[in-house]
């Protein structure tokens, strides 16, 4: 989940609203609503106390607890697998494609910055 949150930061999503694990699914939902946990299990939105740091009065921050709806699993996780070979193959293919395109374009010299 943290990996996803950091990625969305830099790609611009949810930069100002980074929730804890299993919180995004219940954003805007009501307690008891059906949801899917971060690891893909079916669950239910349940109000829970979560800890966070409060910087509103400066540093060092104060540790506080707030109520938040979190998705709590009601069934076992589904097992998913990734293929590292496929990922590496796609990466190498992309590098090769880019290099090939650039070699074709190599002879054309651009105008320098004025």
């Amino acid at each position: 989940m943290r990996r996803l949150l950091l990625f969305t930061l830099v790609s611009g999503t949810a930069l100002a609203d980074v929730p804890p694990d299993n919180a995004a699914q219940c954003q805007g939902a009501k307690s008891g609503a059906a949801c899917t946990t971060d690891d893909g299990r079916p669950g239910t939105c349940v109000t829970q106390r979560v800890g966070r740091l409060d910087y509103s009065e400066g540093v060092p921050p104060k540790a506080i607890e707030v109520d938040m709806l979190l998705c709590v699993a009601t069934a076992p996780a589904r097992v998913t697998t990734r293929s590292p070979v496929l990922a590496a193959g796609l990466g190498l293919a992309l590098v090769a494609a880019l290099a090939g395109l650039s070699v074709v374009a190599r002879g054309r010299r651009p105008r320098p910055v004025s």
């Binding site: 949150l5 950091l6 930069l15 100002a16 980074v18 740091l53 910087y55 509103s56």
Partner: peptide
């Protein structure tokens, strides 16, 4: 709409 705690995480 911004919060330092959330910006720290991100």
């Amino acid at each position: 709409g911004l919060d330092f705690g959330e910006l720290v995480v991100s």
